[in-house]
Nucleic acid binder design. Structure first.
Length: 661
RNA sequence: GCUGCUGUAGCUCAGUCGGUAGAGCACCUCCUUGGUAAGGAGGAGGCCACGGGUUCAAGUCCCGUCAGCAGCUCCA
């Protein structure tokens, strides 16, 4: 999945959960220590929401222990259970595949995994695990759980630990010992006849009641390094009760049912083509209508906030990207140059250099600033084939890009304005969000002082807007720090779209200036920002957020009209004409055929409202209104329905109310 | 890019041991005039992803390429 995965840093956080320093440990096997005082791994629903009035510099709340998750009803935290079940799985694998070598096996957001090197089969060929192996492993896990007894813990010195793992042929574990920071206890956990280097904590015994399932197997590099061997990663999940496990599996089904790639074909929204190449999305008319509505909302918001439209070319001379620093810092993601009359050109991976050229086309006065220039700019970036994913990760996409050129005094207000616009836009689509402050990455241009100034400006603006920030160390763009917004969708998954970036570097590189009151030439500051991020990713996410059930204002077809018999078709056509004249997207199902079939087909198309008309409706000039997803019908005068949809459209309502009878 | 898996009609899938292609839905035509989620009959639709190879014979076996899927790594 490209979304809903563990949050950035989650894995690292898990591995860094060390035992409490100074805690005495027995040098022989003892019972497992309790997890009191240990940090636990955040679970599904714990991402902190950015709430007004909280300290913007407060640490990530995800590290804390309080939870309201009703599934946390067991004797130990869910993450502890899952970590223990990963051990249980490892012991089963060790039994079924003698000689297996183990890497890391932590709990993660929705379950756990263990990275394992399975030894070659008897024929000497490498052995890849399959689905049916997972079932075998599960069976073995159940057998071991029954007779494993208590979980025991042992603390050893570094040398003892290494020798112990080396004796068992566990080379990855030997390496893992060295990763444990000095001064921290080195512990082993044991159940039955299997032991594992592990920081714990664990549940006390396996003959408790719990439910688990192994879900998938995939490759994963040892220690996440693509230059190191690839191990096989088995994913699984565990809960305290069968009901919770079943609920989780049902949730996974719901995720699958909302997959934008599936809905993309089912609802005729978009396609991709071998013939066109990977990572390029073709928007069908249905999704074109959705996009057009969003664009028009976007433009009206931007024009109202003082943005002005600009348009820039897709292909420009390579020299421009040399000057901007893209060639030095971004070349891996850029398409190869093309030679036109012996001059090298490039397809743009970003819109900023183009906007800078417009700025430089003449002298600028302080009176003009701030300049807010907006473009729905299509860019192309090379992405490695394995990362492409439907509309969510593509090679060509349209950013809702803007660049604000302003004075240092205006900077905080400008950023605050962007934050307000982002918050307003995201709420319009029913998203909640979290804001992350991303700092200087390793590959960057500009001096540390300049970066510090930019960072301070972002923090100040966030404080002004009462926006809580979560720190994302080293996550900035190469030219400046940024605030990224991650939205939470209807299924609780996180997506990154919006971003606001503070840039002192490109103005420097391009020698941008404006003439100030005193006649001096001064350097403007650039703010790069995207609200939706890219239309591809945003709309792909929107499809899943709504499960294809778009709110009325963006739905491709808003109203379906269904006559009961052919003689009602004229009436239905008349109503259709009225709604169409008012700008509604209407499906008039006046062709021959059965009503039930038409109802089904409109329901499948996720059309918000169906209007059904028979003798009664024609006689009274009413319509029988049926809402998407509901079998109820309300008969109201047509004019009343018309008024309702007008109001819903105007307010961009997320609701789909029944008309008041 | 890496590891594993997959690719048959618009969609979902069947196709046995290698013997020349099948279903349901969707689509088209005709019949059906039906009060709230599939009326009936018929028809059309396939370079079995693409390119090589093995074989008397390949959707089926082998190799390569492309694309997709689950992850890893990286991002709007």
């Amino acid at each position: 999945m490209a979304y809903g995965e563990a949050r950035p840093g989650a894995a690292a956080r898990i591995h860094s959960l060390r035992a409490l320093p100074g805690r005495p440990r027995p040098r022989s096997w003892g019972s497992a220590p309790s997890q009191v005082g240990r940090r636990r791994i955040p679970d599904d629903d714990e991402t902190p929401m950015a709430t007004p009035g909280t300290d913007p510099h407060a640490p990530h709340a995800a590290g804390c222990c309080d939870t309201t998750d009703p599934r946390e009803r067991g004797p130990f935290p869910l993450s502890t259970l899952r970590h223990s079940v990963s051990h249980l799985m490892a012991s089963a694998v060790a039994k079924l595949f003698p000689g297996a070598k183990f890497g890391f096996g932590p709990a993660v957001e929705h379950g756990f995994y263990y990275d394992i090197e399975i030894p070659p089969g008897e024929d000497g060929e490498p052995r890849a695990l399959e689905e049916k192996d997972l079932r075998r492993i599960e069976d073995e896990m159940r057998r071991i759980a029954k007779k494993a007894g208590a979980m025991q813990c042992l603390t050893l010195t570094r040398d003892e630990a290494k020798a112990r793992m080396a004796a068992q042929g566990q080379s990855y574990k030997v390496e893992a010992v060295d990763l444990i920071p000095a001064g921290e206890a080195i512990t082993f956990y044991r159940h039955g006849d299997w032991e594992d280097l592990c920081e714990g904590p664990h549940i006390d015994r396996f003959d408790r009641e719990f439910a688990f399932q192994l879900t998938t197997v995939a490759g994963a590099y040892w220690r996440g390094d693509e230059k190191r061997p690839m191990l096989q990663r088995i994913y699984g999940t565990a809960f305290w009760t069968k009901e919770d496990l079943a609920a989780h599996l049902a949730w996974l089904e719901e995720v699958k049912a909302r997959d934008h790639r599936k809905l993309g074909t089912d609802l005729d929204l978009f396609s991709t083509h071998d013939e066109a190449g990977a990572g390029f999305v073709f928007w069908h008319p249905n999704l074109g209508l959705v996009r057009r509505e969003i664009e028009s909302f976007w433009w009206s918001e931007h024009l109202a906030r003082g943005y002005e439209p600009v348009y820039t070319p897709h292909v420009v001379r390579e020299k421009l990207f040399e000057k901007s620093g893209h060639l030095q810092n971004y070349a891996d993601l850029m398409y190869s140059p093309m030679d036109i009359d012996e001059i090298l050109y490039r397809i743009k991976p970003m819109n900023c250099p183009g906007h800078i050229l417009i700025y430089k086309s003449r002298g600028r006065s302080y009176r003009e600033l701030p300049l807010r220039w907006a473009e729905l700019g299509t860019v192309y970036r090379y992405e490695r084939s394995g990362v492409l994913h439907g509309m969510l990760r593509v090679r060509g996409f349209t950013q809702d890009d803007s660049h604000i050129f302003c004075t240092p005094e205006q900077l905080a207000d400008e950023i605050a304005g962007v934050i307000d616009l982002i918050a307003h836009t995201l709420r319009t689509f029913g998203f909640q969000f979290t804001a992350y402050l991303a700092t200087r990455p390793e590959k960057a241009i500009g001096s540390p002082e300049v970066w510090e100034r930019a960072l301070e400006a972002l923090k100040a603006a966030a404080a002004k807007s009462h926006l809580a920030l979560v720190l994302d160390e080293g996550g900035g763009a190469f030219y400046g720090p940024k605030i990224d917004f991650k939205v939470r969708d209807a299924l609780g998954r996180e997506w990154q779209n919006s971003t606001v970036q503070c840039d002192f570097n490109l103005p420097e590189r391009f020698d941008l200036s404006y003439t100030d009151k005193d006649g001096a030439h001064k350097r403007p500051i650039m703010v790069h920002r995207a609200v939706l991020g890219s239309f591809e990713r945003f709309v792909g996410g929107l499809i899943e957020h709504f499960g294809g059930r778009f709110p009325l204002w963006i739905a491709p077809e808003q109203v379906a009209l269904i006559p009961i018999r052919e003689q009602h078709a004229d009436y239905v056509r008349e109503l259709s004409g009225i709604l169409k004249a008012d700008g509604f997207r209407v499906g008039c199902m006046d062709e021959a055929g059965h009503m039930n079939k038409k109802i089904q087909s409109a329901e499948k198309a996720r059309t918000p409202y169906m209007l059904i008309a028979g003798d009664r409706e024609v006689a009274e000039r009413t319509v029988a209104v049926r809402r998407r997803g509901s079998r109820e019908q309300t008969v109201v005068p047509f004019e009343k329905f018309h008024g309702l949809v007008k109001a819903l459209r105007a307010s961009r309502s997320l609701e789909l109310p029944a008309p008041a009878g």
